[in-house]
Design a protein around this nucleic acid. Sequence first.
DNA 1: TCATTAACTGAGG
DNA 2: CCTCAGTTAATGA
Length: 243
Amino acid sequence: MTGDAIRAALVRRLRLTSNISEDDIKEIEALPISVRQFPAEMPVVRDGERATDCCLIADGFCVRSKTIANGKRQILSIHIPGEIPDLMSLFLHVMDHELSTLTPSTLGFISHETLQKLHRRAPNIAEMFWRDTLIDAAMFREWIVNVGQRPAPSRLAHVMIELRERLRIIGRVDGDHFEMPMTQEQIGEALGITAVHANRVIKQLRQEGILEFHRGRVTVLDERKFLELADFDDRYLHQSPTL
DNA sequence: TCATTAACTGAGG
DNA sequence: CCTCAGTTAATGA
């Protein structure tokens, strides 16, 4: 995949989630990007590392996570093509968590220097990145509520629906199914439960006729029950651009 | 390797 | 007594 295709992934998302102008699109299309391929389950930026670039996902799924002293890992967020998961490293240079791939991924790296110059030159783009970062924080608040307060089946349904609604924006929901390329171990790490319990929860949703989950693909069988279980309100995603 | 399930255990309501 | 969830272990795809 070329730099052009990677910039296109970002532009596509910004067109759908913000009021980006044609001039600003030209700015983004002129950004120097270095492209790198990563295999599945590979760290991209490690906890404690000093980042010099921000990472734009062109293709693949990534997660942000933290690992505690006893080795247990908490997955904090899931990221999809068109997103810049470590945008905050532009101002918080030393990573306080890890970014890693879930699937083989094509990533574009934009230097902090380039982005800082862009911020000064194009305040509208700076505002869009501000907005992205605030939405990121809103998603973390929702994640905390999810893991801290919802029962496990609702936790799973909520994470699934959030992922689906974000995939929908980039045109990656196909009818009643969408990709969630995670093992049950990883789902457990996202929900704060063991892999065995994640399996029990999936089994329960399957038996209740709500969904099917197989090889990283979710198929929704009963949308009404699914929504009710997830207790999902998309307000926190702030999807429509401010008008 | 990952998914599945049973059996047992304990916390907590 | 019931539900939820961790642990362990066996087995299947």
